[in-house]
Design a protein around this nucleic acid. Sequence first.
DNA 1: AGCGTTGGTTTACATCCGTAATCGATATGA
DNA 2: TCATATCGATTACGGATGTAAACCAACGCT
Lengths: 122, 122
Amino acid sequence: MSERISEAELAVMEVLWEQSPLTATDVAGRVARERDWSLATVKTLLSRLVAKEAVGHHLDGRRFLYSPLVEREAYVSRESRRLVDRFFGGKLMPLVAHLAEQQSLSDDDIAEIEKLLREMKS
Amino acid sequence: MSERISEAELAVMEVLWEQSPLTATDVAGRVARERDWSLATVKTLLSRLVAKEAVGHHLDGRRFLYSPLVEREAYVSRESRRLVDRFFGGKLMPLVAHLAEQQSLSDDDIAEIEKLLREMKS
DNA sequence: AGCGTTGGTTTACATCCGTAATCGATATGA
DNA sequence: TCATATCGATTACGGATGTAAACCAACGCT
């Protein structure tokens, strides 16, 4: 899998990341809480994801059970890195600085990040 | 400006963020160091950016001088927030944790982030 | 005055994306 | 057995995107 996952496709991935394997109908049912899509639309998205090899399927009787082939963790990493590369010269620091400035962090947030960093140092 | 700026358009924006105003030819010349685009392509991208009101232009003799209407800072903020919202429930902490795990941060990096956080607390 | 150059505008065209409808095969209930 | 519901596959179609070529008006040079 190397192609990117589109916005709509991502909603489907999120469902499968939360639980899998699922049938197309199940996916449609779950995704419906977020988006108002017809079953047909979800089927299309699933096919495209299978074509992109982001999702795998195997026959169960006469229908497919779909499961993610890409871990959420891995995908999130790729997208995060993409952002950091595109806008922050690949450096994490400026991103953190930037975000920290934008969203005023609570003291608790800051404390938590500090704790994390301390753990990393060891 | 509310529409998104596409990947290709972004390369043009970066040129204008670095220096502006510039003519289309200037932009093409500068962007050429990154991408192998014809002048026509750059002209198209500039028009689309003007349509999106991400770039403004004013007449200078018989050609246009183009300048960004969107600050890089603001755009980067929007995209960063988008990522954080999509993948980390809008919380900065998990992003930092995630990135920190992925790219092994040097002790210097960590120190720098800690310094930043200390400053924010006051 | 004529022509090549330069600049913006219009048109082009393949691919991707969002959002389905339709089709054809199979399973199922009456 | 026959209609119907269910599935995946195929087709559709408008808008965005990447990447240009063609077109037309104005400028400058010869």
